[in-house]
Simulated scan of single mutants.
Amino acid sequence: MRPRSLLGLVLVAMLGTACAQADESANAPVEQAGLETAYFAGGCFWCTEADFEKLDGVAEAVSGYMGGKVASPSYKEVSRGTTGHTEAVRVRYDPEVISYRALVAFHWRNIDPTVANRQFCDRGSQYRSGIYYRDDAQARIARDSLETMQQRFDTVHTEVEKATTFYPAEDYHQDYADKNPLRYQAYRFNCGRDARLKKLWGDEAGKLPADAG
């Protein structure tokens, strides 16, 4: 193999850095034509990722971290609750099949918005729930949905804020429900996630509303 020139190595390094930065940016361009991006936090990202990936029109959901003050945090750092991040999921979807409004409505029905800095059995600011909008259009939909939830529940702690840098989580967290189905189901059951959703939402729990639009 011919050795690369010094200039070539520098260019490769610069391109690699640029790609990494773009991938981490909340406003990074979508890689697949026709897809749009949304960000949500609903406690354990294994569950949030798995919930969104079952929807028609969702191309992928990636587990990661958002909202903190430390660059490129590790799971160990985030799990201590000291970095300011929450476990979040980046959802890439086809707006011709499913709308952002529908995704937001679905997200509410998969979280407990009445509690602060926790979701189900997981406690700490790293498990706070949230909707993180990318632009004005998403902001209007997210804020309107928050007002609706505030009319339904006495107290709503789910944060609705502009998306910041999203850092994908480590590989072993991605597609955890598919890679470790028995452990995932055991965790989800023992955490009481579906039982609490049923109590909060009744027959709407975990479902995509028919009138989401």
Rank of each mutant, 00 (worst) to 15 (best):
M1W: 01
M1H: 09
R2P: 02
R2D: 10
R2Y: 01
P3D: 10
G8R: 13
V10Q: 06
L11T: 10
A13G: 09
L15I: 15
L15D: 12
G16H: 08
A18T: 09
C19W: 15
C19G: 13
A20T: 12
A20I: 09
S25A: 15
S25E: 08
S25N: 09
A28H: 06
A33R: 14
G34H: 11
G34K: 13
E36W: 08
F40C: 05
A41H: 01
F45Q: 04
C47N: 03
C47T: 00
C47E: 06
E49P: 10
D51I: 02
E53Y: 06
K54G: 06
K54S: 12
K54Y: 06
L55D: 09
L55F: 13
L55R: 07
G57V: 10
G57E: 09
V58Q: 00
A59P: 02
A59Y: 12
E60R: 15
E60M: 08
V62C: 08
S63R: 03
M66A: 07
G68N: 01
K69A: 11
A71K: 15
S72P: 01
S74Y: 04
K76W: 06
V78P: 03
R80C: 07
G81W: 00
T82V: 12
T83D: 01
T83P: 02
H85A: 07
E87Q: 12
A88R: 07
A88V: 07
A88E: 05
A88M: 10
R90K: 15
R90F: 10
V91I: 15
V91T: 03
R92S: 14
Y93D: 05
Y93S: 07
E96A: 15
I98L: 06
Y100V: 04
L103P: 03
V104F: 03
F106G: 00
H107M: 08
R109M: 08
R109S: 09
N110M: 04
I111C: 01
A116L: 15
A116W: 02
Q119S: 07
F120C: 00
F120I: 02
C121N: 05
R123M: 10
R123A: 06
G124E: 02
S125C: 01
Y127T: 02
R128G: 00
R134F: 01
R134A: 11
D135W: 14
A137C: 04
A139T: 07
R143A: 12
S145I: 11
L146W: 02
M149P: 03
Q150H: 11
Q150D: 02
T155D: 14
V156C: 11
H157T: 01
H157G: 07
H157R: 14
H157I: 05
T158L: 08
E159C: 04
V160T: 07
E161I: 10
E161C: 06
K162I: 12
P168Q: 05
A169Q: 02
E170N: 10
Y172W: 13
Y172D: 04
Y172L: 11
H173A: 03
D175C: 12
D175R: 14
Y176F: 15
Y176C: 01
D178H: 09
D178M: 14
D178V: 11
K179T: 14
R183A: 15
N190D: 11
C191H: 03
G192W: 03
G192D: 04
R193Y: 05
D194V: 07
L197D: 09
K198D: 10
K198I: 07
K198H: 05
K199V: 13
W201V: 09
E204N: 09
E204Q: 14
A205D: 01
K207I: 01
L208M: 11
P209S: 10
A212L: 08
G213V: 06
G213T: 10
